[in-house]
Nucleic acid binder design. Structure first.
Lengths: 117, 117
DNA sequence: TGCTGATATTGACGCCAGTCGATATATACT
DNA sequence: AGTATATATCGACTGGCGTCAATATCAGCA
């Protein structure tokens, strides 16, 4: 299915919406807190923060170009991109043998809003 | 030392500044990423998110009033308030036998800025 | 002074996350 | 088909986290 020039999205399943209002407006219920904690947990790692930062700076980055600057092995990079993608912060497109990653700015904005932005 | 009506700040040591520019502007170095990850890690827990949310909604809350809504024992509440305070997100004042907690809005704003706000 | 109550600390337990080596899968090239 | 390379998955190890019971500390009060 799809053209050979396909730019298939790498799908890691549904991402929850960081829907609910700001933290500081009214007490969050357990479900909202759990969802927000999950997304923040995806960000709460120095390697993933730098990964996201590198991708944001370059616009689009191949997985293979992350191992060296992050000083981690290929399985570990794959692990981190997966977690960021599952949190909706990173989106990947498979082009040929490579996966190209770019950030999802709307997702970051949603987190900022949840933090009282 | 200090007056008997003292409102001594509960001090958990220095808090690092979430200094550095936004994630999305330029790649963060390891130190900046580690610091940001530490603060985000303090937020990446459903109990702590709800705790912060409750304190924010009420302005000022006593530790003893957190056990019931959060359904955790007293040592666990103390553990979580400590982590939030060490991250600079919560500030406590000891008044008599009670500790009154309030959020540090500037700290939340700093995190939002680090996330590209 | 001694008692009561709020908070902090300690120690232990179970669980999850970050990491890597080994291996599997998939895509491109010859 | 066969080979080479990019990425994903698996299994194992290790360290850290959330939780609680028990205990310590400290402020107020009789």
């Amino acid at each position: 299915m799809g053209s050979k020039r396909s730019v298939a999205a790498v799908d890691y399943g549904e991402i929850g919406a960081v829907c609910c209002g700001s933290l500081v407006e009214s007490p969050l219920d357990e479900a909202a807190a759990a969802e927000l904690a999950r997304v923040l947990g995806a960000l709460a790692d120095p390697v993933r923060i730098r990964l996201l930062s590198i991708v944001a700076a370059q616009g689009e980055v191949c997985s293979c170009d992350l191992e060296t600057p992050l000083a981690r092995t290929q399985p570990t990079i794959s692990h981190h991109t997966r977690i960021l993608a599952e949190a909706g912060l990173l989106e990947g497109e498979k082009r040929g043998r490579w996966v190209w990653w770019h950030v999802n700015p709307a997702r970051l904005a949603a987190i900022r809003r949840a933090l009282g932005g």
